[in-house]
């Protein structure tokens, strides 16, 4: 079945079983590997991406729901020349260790900051519940607060 959606600003059409998890379409059909498989059960958050600006765990999201929607993955969040504030903060605080779970955390954080631009520690605890086995949480928290500063500054400048 043909399903069409925008992904990182590009219109894509894919011919796959409509119940295929979006994660596998993004990774194996479209070839964007930044969105990770961790559990396939919507439990770890490694596959988090944005659908119409909302954080979605793509391993548990049938691709049919993506029809006509706007998807953003870590590759579309920003790049080295134009990093998203979250990515900028992640680099400033040198957050990643193994790095595998980090795209999911950054996507969840970006979704949170869009709605909660100045999150408290309690907001962070309630919103960011992904799993990081290297346990980089201490630096992540610092990076999230830093990202909020950068995000606010960007909003004021634009």
């Amino acid at each position: 079945m043909d399903i069409s959606f925008q992904i990182n600003g590009t219109l894509r059409s894919v011919d796959v079983d409509e119940n295929t998890p979006l994660l596998w379409v993004v990774r194996d059909v479209i070839g964007l590997k930044g969105t990770k498989f961790g559990c396939g059960k919507a439990a770890c958050g490694a596959c988090t991406l944005h659908v119409d600006g909302e954080a979605v765990r793509s391993c548990s999201y049938a691709v049919k729901y993506a029809e006509g929607k706007n998807i953003t993955t870590i590759e579309g969040l920003g790049d080295a020349d134009n990093p998203h504030p979250v990515q900028q903060a992640w680099m400033e605080e040198v957050v990643p260790q193994c790095g595998y779970c980090q795209p999911g955390f950054m996507m969840a954080t970006a979704a949170m900051l869009d709605k909660t631009p100045n999150p408290t520690d309690e907001d962070i605890d309630a919103n960011i519940v992904n799993v990081c086995r290297c346990a980089t949480y201490y630096r992540m928290r610092k990076a999230i607060h830093r990202a909020a500063e950068l995000h606010t500054a960007n909003a004021q400048n634009s």
Binding site: N19, V56, C59, Y61, M112, D114, D123, N127
Partner: peptide, 19 residues
């Protein structure tokens, strides 16, 4: 909440792959 909506994980049907 903002980045952890019900819809972050739960869609309009059961997901047989994820449970």
């Amino acid at each position: 909440v903002a980045a952890l909506r019900c819809e972050t994980c739960h869609q309009e049907e059961n997901n047989e792959f994820s449970g």
